[in-house]
Design a protein around this nucleic acid. Structure first.
Lengths: 198, 198
DNA sequence: GTCTATACGCCGATAGAC
DNA sequence: GTCTATCGGCGTATAGAC
């Protein structure tokens, strides 16, 4: 997606801006974060400098969203490649989400807690995103292979990730006080049993 | 909580303001809604008039939140009075949530979709609210009476309402295209089985 | 590529007439 | 209790020097 002819050009500080923005958005929300906040957190001293890297504030969020979904999509591909059975694929996805929650909580905050279309009205809803479309496909496979109960795949997705994501949300907000990892195996069991053919 | 000596005074338009604000907040979010928007939607023609009813914008949201939680709390009390077994009480709560989703979607949007502490930093988190504390108590009872599996009540609550609320969220955002009612009985079963002692 | 300076608009909020 | 008028501030964004 990069049209740059040179290989590395500006990317350095651009990434710092994105990183700072992610952190601040996750922490205070998009509207409570000013460009000055982002500049300051990026090592730059003035908001104006940001305009050299992004057309405007929204574009920062847009880029962030795209990056996250992109790498998520890649991870999903990898997961589907390495695992055969839908149950195993789903399990690996859960693994990934729990790991991200502990190791990159801002990313999960961005995905699970922020109300993205409040500041990115044009953005595709999470569920229509490549990564999540593939997850539904996994569920669909699970149904046809007899691992998952024969219900509307979208509903199965809703139930399964309702449990997973709500648990992670509770961890992210501090309502559950241990690391996500501590709840992982139990939560997986509950979520899987909610949709598995018994 | 009203210190008014007269019985009915201003309440008329105040409620219209709250109603309009609720609708707009649910639809566009707090930060995308200006006082002018609210004024216009309230039948008033100027934002200034609002200051006669509320000290500032935040207070509108605060009042809204308090009202919603208040009436929710009352409903929960009623539910606990009318039903004995924890399972029945939980079922009635689910009934209420699904009914509200169909009949007063803005309220459920406010509760389930808006990131409340982004614009009300001081507000109590939902879970620490009287209504939700009582719900946890119901779950606790369910555990000691042997209806619900013996796990951390907060986790049980997380799993159970993860399913319920995610389903309602999908209805509210239009990802699930039927009325909430259409999914109610199936969703209840799944959610209940996720925490019930088998 | 980051700085200074500055413009502009919008929104929240106040004062005061009616 | 709603209006007109007006203020102040903050945050986004631009122009241009270095």
């Amino acid at each position: 997606m990069d049209q740059e002819k040179d290989t590395h050009t500006k990317t350095e500080t651009q990434d710092e801006i994105l990183l700072a923005a992610l952190k601040l958005f996750a922490e205070k929300g998009y509207f409570n974060t000013s460009l000055s906040d982002i500049a300051e957190a990026s090592g730059i001293k003035t908001a104006s400098a940001i305009y050299h890297h992004f057309k405007h504030k929204q574009m920062i969020a847009t880029a962030l969203y795209a990056n996250i979904l992109d790498s998520l999509n890649i991870s999903i591909d990898e997961i589907r490649r390495k695992n055969q059975k839908p149950s195993e694929q789903l399990h690996a996805v859960v693994d990934l989400f729990f790991k991200l929650t502990d190791e990159a909580p801002e990313i999960m905050q961005f995905l699970l807690i922020l109300k993205i279309n409040e500041f990115l009205p044009e953005a595709k809803p999470l569920l229509e995103t490549a990564a999540f479309v593939k997850i539904i496909k996994v569920i669909r496979n699970g149904i046809s292979e007899g691992e998952i109960r024969n219900i509307d795949p979208l509903l199965a997705q809703t139930y399964f990730f309702g449990i997973i994501q709500n648990t992670l949300r509770m961890v992210l907000t501090g309502a559950l006080d241990k690391k996500a990892e501590a709840y992982q195996s139990q939560t997986w069991l509950i979520a899987w049993n909610a949709i598995a053919k018994k």
